[in-house]
Design a protein around this nucleic acid. Structure first.
Lengths: 318, 318
DNA sequence: CTGAAAGCGCTTACAG
DNA sequence: CTGAAAGCGCTTACAG
């Protein structure tokens, strides 16, 4: 492997000078620069980012942690993160935790040992220690789509789940639904419980309480789109029609939600933009050597499609 | 930040000894080990993986490159790669190239500079230079789902596209279809063309030639499931019924394909297993300091669901 | 404008 | 069984 020193020798200059031209740092005389550039081209030299990271004390890498990459919302978030990170010269270490506390602990350790400059968390288990572990080592972290965290050092880009759930419940209520269920993630997820709570409160404002999905519900509110889509599948395989017998709503507006065969009523969010913005925040904080300590909220319009309809007269038999 | 030296001082031993207990390498006397372990626990020490990588000349990181993370097949592949990599103590650098040669070149550079120990490529542009660039620097690479590459140094885990396309065309032919179209990725992808070719040949064996999708086709064979699903959407929005007016087939059998509202006829493949196996091959080669130079083929059964039916008497009007 | 020197935090033979 | 020493490939003040 050719190193800085090889290039320096070939160009007849010192390592410092080669380093200067590569980093575009100090001023280098034009003829010197040319010699160095030629030597680099001749040798096919690539700087060793590991050596650089060790000395410069910045890995130029950030971590993205999501529970499930095959959930289109998280995949979108990861894409947003990657694009933004690459544009800034950062690499991204991806981890898929399945909301397992053990995997999260592993992930935390790996991220710390690899000296990532920051991390964006798109989902984690309820009460996960991950953010604190990272923060305590001085690593800036932003939570995407995970609510308002207690720790003030955290950055957060959030949906307004309260408002969104109010819109969903209002829509359902107007359609005459009085028996409505909530379906959460199989994975015990942080945000699942938040949305459930917001849902329950919106119901309570109308004097209603949640019902079980197979306990005669005429509508089911799912924690996210992927779950809503899976719910439609389950319902229909039991012989229930959506939306004639039961209405279903999602959350995220993943690309698939607008498919002709799905047409899911849901709440829109912009995963790509969330990812982009999260990187922006985390990288800025890393560069300034401080926690992110900044929160912002996305606006999430309700988009009404064809999985919601007037409540049936009769309660459907599951 | 606490370093090896801090731990050594606290335990009253040398750096070498601390390093030995951490790596579980050389034999260390029990009392010494205990002292060191206590010092590690007391200080909350985490080894610096960057320093280790520099000296040990292995980053314990691998790259996964896919064109699109929001394609469920690639997401599944990435999950398989991550699980296997993490189990072996490797981190994964994820990149999403959108099949752009410019992004691929960027990615290659980043992967080289970061000294990844190996890379698995799940998709790339037609005639991409990426594999060669990596191979030439001694980085083992395996292609997943990308056919039989020319370069003998490459590893490959592949579907048998010829056999799969023959099964699909046979199925369609038996249903009476004689005007069938192929839909490839918008992204100009390596494997898209391979499948198109296999498709064309299977048609030719029956004396048929491909037809345009809106040129009166009674069946359309899509390059993959995500595309098939998008095609159903487009067709139906034009007023065509699937499968009554036109049959549609996919490739991959992503989780969504079996959804009650989709029920896609497709060819099964196991993205998770492909990812796992790819990591296994690439890590083994890395450890032995050699190219992968090994190929294997997955078996891909045809799964017939409800997007294919007997060809209509009349050619549908688009 | 250029180069000599120190050092980032580890690992790895090698002595003892 | 333990430690002193060299060195991985860079960056970064600092002299000159």
């Amino acid at each position: 492997m050719t190193t800085l020193l090889d290039v320096a020798r070939r160009a007849g200059v010192s390592k410092s000078t080669v380093s200067n031209v590569i980093r575009g740092a100090a001023l280098v005389a034009e003829p010197t620069r040319l010699k160095v550039e030629r030597a680099i081209a001749d040798t096919g030299y690539h700087p060793n980012a590991i050596a650089r990271a060790l000395k410069a004390r910045t890995s130029k890498a950030i971590g993205i942690v999501v529970p499930d990459l095959t959930n289109l919302f998280y995949a979108g978030l990861a894409v947003g993160v990657e694009r933004a990170a690459n544009a800034l010269g950062y690499a991204v270490l991806a981890t898929h935790t399945e909301c397992s506390p053990a995997t999260e602990a592993e992930t935390g350790r790996a991220l710390i040992e690899r000296q990532v400059d920051g991390v964006v968390i798109g989902g984690m288990s309820l009460g996960s220690a991950l953010p604190t572990v990272l923060l305590d080592r001085g690593i800036p972290v932003v939570l995407a789509s995970l609510g308002e965290p207690d720790d003030l050092r955290l950055g957060a880009i959030d949906h307004d789940d309260e408002v969104a759930m109010e819109k969903i419940v209002e829509h359902l209520y107007e359609l005459g639904h009085r028996r409505v269920a909530f379906v959460a993630q199989e994975l015990q997820e942080q945000s699942g419980e938040r949305r459930r709570l917001a849902f329950t409160e919106a119901l309570a404002r109308r004097g209603l309480v949640p019902v079980d999905i197979y306990g005669g519900a005429t509508a089911v509110v799912a924690h996210n789109d992927m779950l809503a889509i899976a719910t439609i599948d389950r319902l229909e395989r039991r012989g229930l029609r959506v939306p004639e017998d039961v209405s279903v709503t999602g959350y995220d507006d993943v690309p698939l939600a607008s498919h002709n065969r799905i047409q899911l009523t849901t709440v829109r969010s912009d995963a790509l933009e969330m990812g982009r913005r999260a990187v922006e925040l985390v990288v800025k904080a890393a560069l300034e050597g401080r926690p992110v300590a900044h929160r912002e909220t996305q606006n999430n319009p309700l988009v009404i499609r064809r999985t919601t309809a007037r409540a049936p007269k009769e309660r459907p038999a599951a």
